[in-house]
């Protein structure tokens, strides 16, 4: 991995344990899957792994999540039949934090390629109402394929700009905004994310994220809950976006984020202390940021 000086200077100021952070980011990512209980069961998938002598272990924060402790090729018939979804272990967290009920109306505002959408459908037992939106024509195709493969039959896919989504009449009990970001957290899989990082790009993304979070919030019913998440590290894309919403919407309240089994660090500002940062060196995962906000009744 080459040295991006701008990235290093920024992150040395952000993290006192920057060297440990970078050391963790340089390690290859641990493979993980999520059992798709809409089509299969943990017993069936574990039996398949054992039959093929694939060592695995349970992910502490996701009952249906399994780490694969080898470089076994996971693109199998079982995968294409939708029995499991190849998904990063920390990316399983936002849907768990959102905790949708089977009777909920849920929106996944930036849904492609569908790992969280299909996880939400699974948590809802294919009931309720689940809308998965994606602005990109190319990415919608991947989203539809993954929804189909998972057998997620409670999903409606829309292809619209997430900004301004509140113009449609439908309102939601819960909204997930896993926002487009600078992807630093994915560097274990995509080292180029660090090479591409610039402050200029971060600021542009932050402006986009602020508009998206406002739209996401305006899609909620009173009493509804929004989970905002990114797989990146900059304060401008995380805490600043949440603070922007809290300053703009006086009926927005930030809630505690509790994730049993995950070591977390609190948000970087006083107003966002209840949000969490998940660090690769703490949990052997990608980097993630999660905030949970409720609209007062």
């Amino acid at each position: 991995m080459g040295i991006n000086r701008e990235f290093e200077e920024y992150h040395r100021r952000l993290y006192p344990d920057y060297d440990k952070f970078m050391s963790a980011l340089r390690k290859p990512q641990k493979m993980s899957i999520r059992v798709n209980t809409l089509k299969s069961s943990k017993e069936i998938v574990e039996s398949f792994l054992k039959r093929n002598n694939v060592p695995y272990s349970v992910i502490p924060w996701c009952p249906d999540g399994l780490w694969i402790d080898s470089d076994y090729e996971l693109d199998t018939a079982e995968h294409q039949l939708g029995y499991y979804y190849i998904q990063n272990s920390s990316s399983m967290i936002p849907s768990i934090v959102l905790a949708p009920e089977p009777s909920d109306r849920v929106l996944d505002l930036c849904a492609a390629p569908g790992s969280k959408t299909t996880h939400l459908a699974q948590l809802m037992g294919n009931r309720g109402v689940l809308v998965a939106n994606e602005a990109s024509f190319v990415r919608v195709r991947a989203l539809v394929i993954n929804v189909q493969k998972a057998g997620a039959s409670n999903v409606t896919v829309t292809r619209r700009d997430g900004i301004g989504y509140e113009k449609y009449p439908q309102r939601f009990d819960k909204v997930l905004l896993d926002a487009p970001c600078s992807d630093v957290g994915t560097a274990r899989k995509n080292p180029g994310a660090i090479d591409r990082w610039t402050m200029d790009r971060v600021k542009k993304l932050s402006n986009l994220q602020k508009k998206l979070i406002t739209s996401a919030y305006n899609c909620l019913i009173p009493g509804g809950v929004l989970v905002y998440s990114t797989c990146t590290t900059s304060r401008e894309e995380n805490e600043d976006v949440v603070e922007h919403l809290l300053d703009e919407e006086k009926d927005a309240r930030i809630l505690d984020v509790e994730i049993p089994g995950v070591k977390t660090r609190c948000g970087l500002t006083e107003k966002t202390r209840n949000s969490v940062r998940i660090m690769p060196q703490d949990n052997d995962t990608e980097s993630y940021y999660i905030a949970k906000i409720q609209k007062e009744k």
Binding site: S103, V129, V131, S153, T156
Partner: peptide
């Protein structure tokens, strides 16, 4: 299998169950 159809401009709803051509039913994998 959702509880109701949402009031949004849908691109795709549910799962593709089958295609019917000349009276013949071609199921998807699902």
């Amino acid at each position: 299998t959702g509880d109701a159809l949402p009031d949004v401009p849908a691109e795709w709803t549910g799962i593709h169950f089958c295609t019917i051509r000349d009276g013949v039913v071609f199921p998807s994998i699902e």
